[in-house]
Design a protein around this nucleic acid. Structure first.
Lengths: 241, 241
DNA sequence: CGGAATTTTGAATATCGTCAAAGTGAGTGG
DNA sequence: CCACTCACTTTGACGATATTCAAAATTCCG
């Protein structure tokens, strides 16, 4: 049996983690085998389905998590029911507000989702022992700040047309972060029209109209509402402003 | 000469820091006297006036800073000139994007501003030595995430009226974080009408109209354009949605 | 195949933007 | 101290964009 140079303790990595596709990309990338073993004692995989709520807005935070599969939406709601999606999370994002007892947002699954959940206390202890973990979380927080600001520009200054195109561009980048040149791409929308509206600060009608328009001018093709083929990536990029 | 119990090394605190009003509140609160001495070797106070740019959008980051006095605006601009303010920074906020070579936003003074500037390298070394510093910066990053999301709700879902009222409420909280009951408050706006528009995703005309309306219904008083007296805090809170 | 949920589309309306003109205030120099 | 200038703000009339409300069409799923 061959043992690789650095992964001499690889057999010590918990089974749970060995099968985790995003183990090296997320927060856990900062942990070595021994730390993973320690960590895994306090984690468990939780499966939720579309519509299930992981954290309530202003609800207490009992556990944190890492997304392993699927899409989560973070929403804020006004007293009269108006809603805004303020973030989307994909694997391997960290879920939950650190250093705060209440979640400032509602966290809800947009699709079938698997997360790797860890208790508050276990994470706190791990953070105390392992500064590299905190560095990872700082990195994610800074990325979220950047993403949030990118969307503030869209919400405040872009037209409905540009908002919808920007959202599609965001989906393209989610698939292929380097979205080079004019390579055609296809993907399934993780959100309903209503959710797209909640994300873009638009109504469902306006979202639908602008998608129809992008379809009519030949920028995209739409199959069965959810599936998008990008026929002209450059034109889509232009439309995004 | 009396030396207090814990601050036995107080005389070692750099003069620069001794006179810093926000020394304990910002990032530097994580440093002891010796560390401050070390730190202060690489810092200098920089004074800038309204309109001066500390960081360009996509410009290289040569130094970080802490706000000591005044207000900074963080903006993003589209190719055709449309602009959005994506954040405001006050003392003792940390300025600059960590772990990234280019600033994702333009940082510009809204008023006379003093910052305590530190070189990239000096901060990096300090962070390596002092995990508590990173914890402080993580805290600020998380606060900025929360603030950004709060504004996304306003930008995406609030009416012009609610946006303007929300902005005034934000100013009230900036003065008095607990903005209790119905205590009247007064303050000077740190932004011009145009800047308020860029912040709220509105035009200057709409901002002015909504301020006039709040004045006419007796919620606020306006003196010489910049000074606001809040006459009815509860009504303002209602107007903010 | 049938019913529910979602999406598309249409017509009328409201909100906010655009453009332009008038008003106000701060700073400067006489 | 006053008048002048310039930048900023207010206000108005009109128009464009997105919303609202409602109905028709499509897709999903049992």
């Amino acid at each position: 049996m061959s043992t690789s140079r650095k992964d001499i303790h690889n057999s010590d990595v918990p089974k749970l983690c060995q099968s985790c596709e995003v183990r090296h990309k997320g927060m856990c990338g900062a942990l070595n085998a021994n730390e993973l073993v320690d960590f895994a004692k306090h984690t468990r995989v939780v499966k939720v389905s579309a519509g299930d709520v992981l954290l309530q807005e202003q609800g207490s935070i009992r556990a944190y998590a890492n997304v392993m599969r699927g899409v989560l939406k973070l929403t804020k709601t006004m007293a009269d029911g108006r809603q805004q999606i303020v973030g989307l999370q994909f694997a391997p994002d960290f879920v939950g507000r650190l250093h705060q007892d209440e979640s400032p947002v509602r966290v809800e699954a947009c699709s079938g989702v698997e997360v790797c959940s860890i208790t508050r206390n276990a994470l706190r202890k791990m953070l105390e022992k392992n500064p590299a973990l905190e560095t990872k979380l700082l990195h994610q927080a800074l990325r979220e700040v950047d993403q949030g600001r990118e969307w503030m520009l869209a919400l405040g200054r872009k037209t409905a047309r540009e908002k919808v195109a920007s959202f599609l561009m965001m989906m393209v980048r989610q698939i292929d972060p380097f979205s080079r040149g004019n390579a055609a791409t296809a993907f399934d929308l993780p959100l309903t029209r209503a959710e797209m509206g909640d994300f873009l600060g638009l109504t469902i009608g306006t979202v639908s109209r602008e998608l129809t328009r992008l379809r009519r001018v030949g920028v995209i093709r739409i199959s069965s509402h959810r599936h998008i083929d990008v026929l002209n990536l450059e034109a889509l990029r232009q439309s995004a402003g």
